[in-house]
Amino acid sequence: MDTADGKRFEPKILGFLCNWCCYAGADLAGVSRLQYPPNIRAIRVMCSAGADPAYVMKALLGGVDGVFIGGCHPGECHYTSGNYYTRRRVAMLKKLMEILGLEPERLRLEWVSASEGALFAEAIKDFTEKLKSLGPNPLKVKKRPGAVVGVKRS
């Protein structure tokens, strides 16, 4: 899909990647020279549960086209249950996005272990394609700085 100004639409993805699994998986994808779209900006978190729902919303309201959360497979979270919390929060966030009128597909959760570089590359490829078909974040199109940027008090 092309944007209004005629440029090809390249979705911007914000990734919250767990230090113990997905971040290492992304690293592995890199050193193994697997090809995946360069659309993701990664933030390393100590556990997928570090992706606070408030920050996920802040990113989406600020105009990123998609948020990717990568966590350890069930049973493998370094802190035993962080990924289960994440799964519950993602379910809640998707409902919230739906109610507000943002496509819930803009938020994706994947389990990626440190050895699954190929899986990570595949997931990002797939997510990027999905976002391309969804088009840009409507809030970005609307140029709504008020969504996340405060106004200085005079």
Partner: peptide, 24 residues
């Protein structure tokens, strides 16, 4: 961590945050 000192909170974020905290 969300709202800068000396600024009015952004309106959409304000509710989005409260929704994630008390919504359920």
């Amino acid at each position: 961590g969300l709202i800068k000192g000396g600024e009015y909170p952004p309106e959409t974020l304000f509710h989005a945050v409260r929704l994630t905290h008390v919504g359920e």
